[in-house]
């Protein structure tokens, strides 16, 4: 079975982004870019399924600027077999990404799409669910355990009250949560090997998808800063302050 894994290139999770002075956007020139951490988990899961003999091919797909090639190479260094870049300089919102991925799924016919639950830049948490809807497939979001067998997926999901297990028919979309696995580090030989793996490029036009954004960002701003508080001398001081000053206990 073929597994398709969408991977997004995002500002590295260690970077604290700054808003541009004119409030038109976030300054991402010259900051470190990485693969969205949830997508690393998705690639790792797909590669493990291949190593276990469940999957036969792992296809990584990224939509965005030419720099996403790097993200695809990282995916291939972890173990994806090939990559497809849907190249565009346009701003991509989740609905547009879902439509692009749907067009590729129609072509590639994967049995499962494993994507991240959320991109840590837009924090949207939408794309996988939208893709599932457009394909008419079932979904299992926020996965912390995935078993694929006999044409179905058994997925343990992290939900507000605890854990839930779903059985869904394949093909399906699964989105990853943090505790699904711990992604491996790509080794140097695997990074070298990844450079030789096939990487194709398509455009949204070629896929027949209109990616025009539906949401217009009017402005961005930094939230009000909390003013730094005080250090208390000891436990007695803390309790006194909570009682008399903050009045919260």
């Amino acid at each position: 079975m073929k597994i398709l894994v969408p991977v997004k290139r995002v500002v590295d999770y260690n970077v604290k982004v700054r808003v541009k002075a004119d409030g038109t956007g976030v300054d991402i020139a010259n900051v470190k870019m990485s693969m969205n951490p949830f997508d690393e988990i998705a690639i790792e899961e797909a590669v493990r399924l291949k190593e276990a003999g469940v999957a036969t091919e792992v296809l990584a797909v990224s939509a965005g600027v030419a720099g996403c090639q790097e993200t695809l190479r990282t995916a291939m260094a972890i173990g994806a077999d090939r990559g497809i870049l849907i190249e565009t300089d346009a701003e991509l919102q989740p609905l547009a990404v879902a439509k692009l991925l749907k067009a590729l799924c129609d072509k590639e016919q994967p049995q499962a799409v494993i994507c991240g639950k959320q991109a840590i830049d837009d924090d949207a948490n939408q794309t996988g669910q939208m893709l599932a809807a457009l394909l008419g497939w079932p979904q299992a979001t926020f996965a912390s355990k995935v078993v694929l067998a006999d044409g179905k997926a058994t997925v343990t999901r992290e939900v507000d009250g605890g854990l839930e297990t779903l059985e869904i028919a394949l093909p399906a979309v699964i989105t990853t949560d943090l505790r699904l696995n711990e992604p491996r580090y790509a080794t140097l030989p695997n990074i070298m090997k990844a450079k030789k793996k096939p990487l194709d490029t398509v455009t949204p036009d070629a896929l027949g998808v209109d990616v025009a954004p539906r949401l217009k960002t009017l402005k961005v701003a930094e939230p009000a800063k909390r003013s730094a508080g005080v250090k208390v001398a000891d436990v007695a001081d803390l309790v006194a302050k909570l009682k008399n000053e903050a009045k919260v206990i």
Partner: peptide, 23 residues
């Protein structure tokens, strides 16, 4: 924007062919 809302609402948005405004 609970795990419940986050789970099903993007499907609604996609089927209506509209964006979802999250959170």
């Amino acid at each position: 924007a609970t795990t419940g809302g986050k789970n099903f609402l993007p499907r609604v948005a996609a089927l209506l062919d509209v964006a979802q405004i999250s959170d």
